[in-house]
Computed example of a mutant assay.
Amino acid sequence: MKQLKSIALALVVALGTMTASAQTTKKVDVAKSKLTWVGKKVTGQHDGTITLKEGALVFKGKKIAGGNFTVDMTTINSTDLEGKGKEKLDGHLKADDFFGVEKFPTSKLVFKTIGTKSNNTYAITADLTIKDITHPITFDLVVGKNVATAKLMIDRTKYDIKYGSKSFFESIGDKAINDEFELNVNLAY
């Protein structure tokens, strides 16, 4: 009888441990999520939006355990301009000397390592793929109830986007565009 109780207790403990360590994948609601970008240059800045195609956050209990996202690069949209200026900028951002969206219609982000900074803030190292070029990127992810936010600083020159970069064209003067652009992420899940 003691042996049966011991086996039963071991089974309960094992099942409890498996349940506690089980992972849950939560799909991101792409319609409610928002990605905004800011690109700066010597003479000012431009900002806009881009659409998330799909994404998911993986939880182990209440903690982040993973994530992967696909961005629809064909949706690059400037929001600070109108008319011909907007058409020109949007077209240029989609062209080969920037994101080349005809050949590279999506970009991807996959979490690789996750560190806990506080109860709901995580230090993320992820692989970011733009134009089929992958580099690691680090950022903080803040997780709330059914929402997660992050600010990524992306060096576009690592992804063969050199247009207007002072790092590659020293005599460009006031036409220089900053190598880094900012991507603000607000995920609903």
Rank of each mutant, 00 (worst) to 15 (best):
I76C: 02
I76N: 06
I76F: 04
I76E: 08
I76Y: 05
N77A: 10
N77W: 04
N77C: 08
N77I: 04
N77E: 11
S78N: 14
S78V: 12
S78G: 07
T79D: 12
T79V: 09
T79P: 06
T79L: 04
T79A: 07
T79F: 02
D80T: 05
D80L: 03
D80I: 03
D80N: 11
L81D: 12
L81E: 11
L81V: 10
L81M: 14
L81P: 08
L81A: 10
L81Q: 13
E82Y: 11
E82N: 15
E82P: 06
G83T: 10
G83V: 07
G83Y: 06
G83C: 08
K84V: 13
K84N: 14
K84W: 09
K86I: 09
K86W: 08
K86C: 07
K86R: 14
K86V: 11
E87C: 07
E87W: 10
E87F: 10
E87N: 12
E87R: 12
E87S: 12
E87Q: 15
K88Y: 11
K88F: 11
K88C: 02
L89F: 04
L89A: 04
L89C: 04
D90Y: 02
G91D: 05
G91P: 05
G91C: 05
H92S: 00
H92G: 01
L93G: 06
L93N: 11
K94P: 05
A95M: 05
A95C: 06
A95V: 05
A95E: 14
A95W: 02
A95L: 03
A95N: 15
D96P: 07
D96L: 06
D96A: 15
D97T: 00
D97P: 00
D97L: 00
F98D: 10
F99L: 08
F99D: 07
F99V: 00
F99E: 10
F99R: 03
F99C: 02
F99Y: 09
F99S: 03
F99Q: 06
G100I: 00
G100S: 14
G100R: 01
G100K: 08
G100Q: 09
V101K: 03
V101P: 04
V101H: 02
V101C: 02
V101S: 08
V101F: 01
E102I: 12
E102L: 12
E102F: 03
K103T: 14
K103Q: 12
K103L: 04
F104H: 15
F104S: 07
F104C: 04
F104M: 08
F104D: 09
P105D: 11
P105W: 09
P105N: 13
P105R: 14
P105Y: 08
T106F: 01
T106H: 04
T106V: 15
T106R: 10
T106C: 01
T106E: 15
S107W: 06
S107H: 09
S107I: 09
S107F: 02
